[in-house]
Amino acid sequence: MTYSPEGDVYVSPRYLAGSDWCGDAAFVPVNHWPTLHLEDGPCQMLITSPDQRIRIGWYGDDFDVYKISASEVASSPTRWSAYFNDAFPAELVAAFTAALERDWEARKDQDVFVEAPSPYWATRVQPLLDAGWKQQRLPGSVTLGAAGRSSRASGPFVEVTAPDGTAGVSIDLGSEDLDEETVLLWAGPSGWHRAEARFTSRTPSHLIAATAKALLDPTPVLRYREQLAPELASLAQLTPLTPPKPPAPTPLDVQRVQRRSQAITTRSMPRWSTTTRPTATTTPPAGRSARR
């Protein structure tokens, strides 16, 4: 699988870029793993680790287009799951799949991709706290998710939010269900175009932290301007892929250049020509003697 980003504008911050409509960037870290293309069913492509303990599904027509899970062994029940919706940039999903791939390669030492998460909530979002994102505690009965698309309530919660309020993380501290979605990472405006990544309670903390850290990456990503939702474009910084051509000069601009050129030519002419240059010695005016 090869991936070449396409677009005509660079979007920054990258978490406001929305979908690239193909999702290939998320699979680059694991493009050497076994891949199965499915014709029937909601899952259109399935990538698994060579031992089939990690499963990365692409559901291109669903709200959650990436569904990722891991198990103790291939035949055991899922230990944790992660879901990334259709507005979540594939370049950020790649941070999660890259961390998974590194964990699997290091499995001879320890199966860290199925280890129990830290009991301390801050380990999940430490990169954001280190970057100065604001935190606050909220009571229960707080709805998570974009309006009209996904919601639930429990709590109490910890909210960690970007200084400009365009991205954040919600962590449910009250859930005791091991399969409950307890961490929501979001970016963008509320509503249909909000990017969401949801993680169940047993998702290893370092995998969530790797995704959160990707929010801080200042590198812009390519998108086609006409495909970028207006709600995102109004919040993001857009830079054309190629600088715009300078405007054609007006008649007044042409006149100014001509006058400037004539003035420079006049000033650059020598005062004395070779035929009129004075001699080295001249006769002093009458009544004055020449001085040495």
Score class of each variant (00 low, 15 high):
residue 99 A to S: 15
residue 216 L to Q: 09
residue 44 Q to H: 13
residue 191 G to K: 03
residue 47 I to D: 09
residue 282 T to W: 09
residue 27 F to V: 09
residue 244 P to M: 07
residue 254 V to K: 13
residue 252 L to W: 08
residue 130 D to V: 09
residue 164 D to V: 00
residue 225 R to K: 14
residue 143 T to I: 07
residue 261 S to W: 05
residue 90 A to N: 01
residue 61 D to R: 12
residue 9 V to W: 00
residue 65 V to K: 08
residue 166 T to A: 00
residue 108 K to L: 06
residue 127 P to A: 03
residue 228 L to C: 05
residue 36 L to E: 15
residue 17 A to K: 05
residue 80 W to Q: 07
residue 109 D to E: 14
residue 98 A to Q: 14
residue 166 T to I: 01
residue 229 A to C: 06
residue 75 S to Q: 14
residue 225 R to M: 03
residue 87 A to S: 09
residue 3 Y to D: 13
residue 17 A to H: 02
residue 274 T to V: 07
residue 222 L to C: 04
residue 8 D to W: 06
residue 31 N to R: 15
residue 121 W to Y: 12
residue 103 D to P: 04
residue 56 I to Y: 03
residue 141 S to M: 13
residue 127 P to Q: 03
residue 57 G to R: 10
residue 259 R to Q: 13
residue 21 W to S: 09
residue 206 H to I: 07
residue 114 V to F: 09
residue 115 E to M: 11
residue 185 L to I: 12
residue 118 S to V: 08
residue 260 R to D: 15
residue 20 D to K: 08
residue 219 T to E: 10
residue 21 W to Y: 15
residue 164 D to F: 01
residue 190 S to V: 03
residue 139 P to T: 07
residue 24 D to E: 15
residue 244 P to W: 04
residue 27 F to D: 03
residue 9 V to Q: 05
residue 217 D to C: 05
residue 228 L to M: 02
residue 136 Q to M: 02
residue 163 P to W: 02
residue 185 L to R: 02
